[in-house]
């Protein structure tokens, strides 16, 4: 099998927040009635079911609440095809949709105490600790394009966007770092 290549080739930008291409990750879209999905999620990525707007686990194995009838599952890139099959098998006979979207996505890691500050420059979402606690999976937009992100801690966040706009998102984040902190959080 050929090696997966991420969209911006492992780029890193250092500043008051470090922006890192996080490489290739396994991602699976799972749609259906949330009440029927728990077993499939466990089977596919070993994670529990997230409650509204939350993420359970993380990139190595996790599930994020994407909409009232949609989850985004995470696993290692190499395991995505297997996880997809496990979900499919577990849901046999139900009304559902499952798709491997790993190659349609790009992932960035943000590191530094200014991550709320940085995201607030680019996004209309309320980034205060009250509105965006750790583990809250927020879908919104960064600049002109759709993105989703969550904070693991006050120093680390993960950003997901479509692969087709990955260079734009990387440039956007890096340029916003260049400007320095606003200092609102």
């Amino acid at each position: 099998m050929s090696d997966p290549r991420s969209a911006v080739g492992g780029a890193v930008y250092e500043g008051y927040v470090t922006v890192k291409d996080s490489g290739a990750h396994g991602m699976i879209t799972l749609r259906g009635d949330h009440a029927e999905l728990a077993e499939a999620v466990k089977a596919a990525v070993g994670s529990g079911m997230p409650t509204q707007r939350r993420i359970e686990g993380g990139l190595g194995g996790g599930a994020a609440w994407a909409s009232p009838d949609e989850l985004l599952l995470f696993c290692d890139y190499a395991d995505a095809a297997g996880a997809l099959e496990k979900a499919r098998k577990s849901l046999e006979g139900n009304h559902f949709l499952v798709a491997d979207v790993s190659d349609a996505r790009a992932v960035f890691a943000l590191e530094g105490s200014g991550i709320r500050d940085l995201l607030a420059k680019l996004c209309p979402a309320d980034l205060s600790p009250e509105a965006l606690p750790h583990g809250e999976f927020r879908r919104s937009h960064l600049g002109q394009v759709a993105a989703a992100f969550w904070l693991e801690s006050e120093e680390t966040a993960t950003v997901i966007c479509f692969r087709s706009v990955a260079p734009y998102v990387y440039d956007l984040l890096s340029e916003a770092v260049k400007g320095g902190p606003i200092g609102i959080f």
Binding site: P68, A125, A131
Partner: peptide
């Protein structure tokens, strides 16, 4: 009303 997010006009 579906996800409970207070969304800005640019997200809609």
């Amino acid at each position: 009303p579906y996800c409970g997010i207070e969304a800005s006009e640019t997200e809609l």
